[in-house]
């Protein structure tokens, strides 16, 4: 019993990490139909910037703030320099552009920072919390709390605010959105800033658990991407559920089947879900225009 609970807690911890990364994908996808493969680099930048600003003497909260603001600024720059100019390009070109951007950011990070592995202290100490014979670290609660808070924030944003609806409108039909007076350029800028900021926040929260280095982005992006797809791209609920489901799947597979093939189990389930629900669990139905 306590074993099962530990597998579940392990799964939730990992799943919350994936969910936070996946949530970052949703906004940009909603605004522009672009899947941003550089999302993992935002997560890396959040962690690494905090480490280095903190090491330079700034208190941790200030370092965190600096990391989020800087990363958000970089997200805006990426939109202006790489995404806006490529408007209307086919999916494969956009995939290459965002992968190119991620390679660029990784290359810059290894020059500006270093190639070592880093961490900073957990926010609420390292003493595990015991629940019926199983344990979880306080930092995991921070990550889970962060994922839930971001989810609620996004859900409110997209359903309750004019701006959030403007983002959705831009995604559905850019021209129509412009015609009804939505400043679509601003919407795009905002979504990149938000996505990058959420990515950086994710990086800050997970670093005490996963540690960080200049090349953690790709692995996180792939898992986050898979989680977002599993849940259904563009839906915050999908990102949250997809991330947690992926994490639980890995934890339970490692616990009961084989730790060697836990990633395989995750991808097999994703393939199976996409086979029966080609839009993911909560994805939007779309029809082709002729």
């Amino acid at each position: 019993m306590s074993e099962l609970l530990q597998f579940l807690l392990s799964g939730v911890t990992v799943g919350a990490v994936y969910a936070l990364v996946a949530l970052g994908f949703t906004i940009i996808y909603n605004a522009s139909d672009v899947v941003n493969f550089a999302q993992g680099e935002f997560v890396m930048l959040g962690g690494m910037t905090t480490v280095f600003v903190h090491a330079a003497g700034a208190p941790l909260p200030l370092a965190v703030l600096a990391a989020i603001v800087l990363t958000a600024a970089l997200g805006v720059a990426m939109n202006k320099l790489a995404i806006e100019p490529a408007r209307g390009a086919p999916v494969v070109s956009l995939v290459i552009i965002t992968i190119g951007a991620s390679i660029f950011i990784r290359g810059a990070a290894q020059l500006i920072f270093d190639k070592q592995i880093h961490s900073f202290p957990a926010f609420s100490g390292d003493d595990p919390i015991r629940i019926m014979g199983a344990t979880i670290l306080p930092q995991s609660l921070w990550v889970i709390g962060g994922a839930v808070a971001v989810f609620i924030g996004l859900w409110l944003f997209f359903t309750r605010t004019l701006l959030g609806r403007a983002v959705l409108a831009t995604s559905n039909n850019r021209l129509a959105a412009q015609l009804v007076g939505i400043n679509t350029t601003f919407v795009m800028t905002l979504s990149f800033a938000l996505s990058a900021g959420i990515g950086a926040l994710a990086g800050v929260l997970v670093t005490p658990i996963t540690l960080t280095s200049y090349d953690v982005g790709l692995g996180l992006a792939l898992k986050g991407f898979a989680a977002a797809m599993l849940g259904g791209m563009g839906n915050p609920k999908g990102a949250l559920v997809g991330g947690l489901a992926l994490g639980l799947l890995e934890g339970l597979t490692a616990g009961y089947i084989s730790s060697q093939y836990k990633d395989a189990a995750a991808f097999i389930v994703i393939l199976a879900v996409l086979f029966f629900l080609p839009q993911g669990l909560f994805g939007r139905k779309s029809t082709d225009r002729v």
Partner: peptide, 9 residues
């Protein structure tokens, strides 16, 4: 990596 990324974009 900087060059490769820039060329791709």
């Amino acid at each position: 990596q900087l060059v490769l990324g820039t060329v791709m974009v």
